[in-house]
Write a protein that binds this DNA or RNA. Structure first.
Lengths: 228, 228
DNA sequence: GAGCTTTTCTTCACTCATTGCAAATTTACA
DNA sequence: TGTAAATTTGCAATGAGTGAAGAAAAGCTC
């Protein structure tokens, strides 16, 4: 007799959702710092104390689907298509990620714009978001290395992920900061990807002769202080 | 009559330094979360309230020289050497940055190892560090664009900085996480830089044919929801 | 050195996030 | 319907961070 989730579960889900919506709406209206957990709880009709059995902190409400998103990505890497290039796979992952962000059927996805604005403008949230992104990239690199263990070692995988993600992230942000209209984002993303894939040399900055690259442990860290 | 900084200034400097040292030592001994601001203040012999007129938050003590470091970097970009390539300049900046981190004459620099360990292991600090890094990169990209306004536009500059920094950051962290000895870091950094400079294609992952790159606004964002 | 001005430090009182605990409620189930 | 398990709640504390007002210290002027 699979009755599906019982009342208990359904209620919990409903409360969770109510909290997320209430929180984001309040944050939008009065600002993140200005909204207290007590207010959020009241808006969802539960006690302040109970809020913390749904979310470990006020920040966490904003990143309610963080882990799920990451897991999906990692899963995607593990089941890469046969013959797919690392870069191709990564681009496909990026696409899925964007799609999930904006095109969800889930009612909660309507909150994406609000959430994005919050994460970009509230320092603590921005920091938290960057940490999430960083962890994701690290896990992504590991997964990539596992998926292509023959062709690419961990450090290379990390460098590849870091370069691609870094280029896109920074270019996008720069473009947004500068006040470019959102429509222009795609063009920006495309260019950033191209630069990362083709290499920095491609930017008409003139080829960086190998001599420029630091070799072994050079002028830096003369005292070996990097150790503990 | 330039008497140099008066007693007032000197005392303030001394207190600030005492706070930084006390804080980092306490964090090291008992852990970041476990150390209260009251304890730090007591160790530096000032009232708890006064702590907050030296640092806006407990986190801030750990990043006491954050802005100074960033400013130095930006300044370096503004006064680039004639004929220097963007990549060359960036590498030189990276070097200076490392040098500043480890080879300072300043007594406080001895705290670098402790600080590094803290930032890597305490979630809130890691997040804060990533935010600082992100802001730095953004400013770096702007400065780069200003310095090479003829050759490179803002988005390109951002992509270049993001790719290079991203590759190094992630590769280094992956290497550290995996448990590699610190001595191996330089080799890792070198490889990451190389990958970023030569492009992801260089990783023996097979060339990514241009077709892979998303062009214009493609399958993504069908509803144009990226807007507001 | 006395007296006055400007800074800095302290104390006090408060708001808010977050946590441990025990009692009160609610849901699941026999 | 009654009991066990899961949730929720109220209450008390701890600790970060802030505003306001007065005390203490430092800088200056005569």
């Amino acid at each position: 007799m699979v009755d599906g989730p019982g009342l208990r579960e359904r209620k919990k889900l409903r409360t969770r959702r109510a909290l997320i919506e209430a929180a984001l709406h309040l944050f939008e209206e009065k600002g993140y710092e200005e909204t207290t957990v007590a207010e959020i709880a009241a808006a969802a009709d539960i006690s302040t104390r109970t809020f913390f059995s749904y979310f470990a902190s006020k920040e966490d409400v904003v990143f309610f689907d963080g882990q799920a998103r990451v897991d999906e990505i990692i899963d995607m890497i593990a089941h890469r298509r046969a013959g797919e290039t690392v870069v191709e796979l990564l681009l496909r992952v990026g696409e899925l990620s964007m799609a999930r962000t904006f095109a969800g059927t889930d009612h909660l996805m309507e909150l994406t714009p609000v959430r994005t604005r919050l994460i970009m403008s509230v320092p603590v949230l921005q920091a938290r978001g960057l940490r999430l992104l960083f962890d994701t990239q690290l896990r992504l690199a590991e997964a990539l290395h596992r998926a292509y263990s023959e062709e690419i070692d961990l450090v290379e995988a990390a460098a590849v992920v870091g370069a691609l993600a870094g280029a896109v992230k920074l270019a996008t942000m720069a473009c947004l900061n500068r006040g470019d209209p959102p429509e222009q984002i795609w063009e920006t993303v495309r260019r950033a990807i191209e630069i990362a894939v083709r290499g920095l040399q491609s930017v008409g900055v003139g080829p960086a002769d190998p001599g420029v690259l630091p070799s072994g442990r050079g002028r830096l860290d003369p005292a070996g202080e990097l150790s503990r």
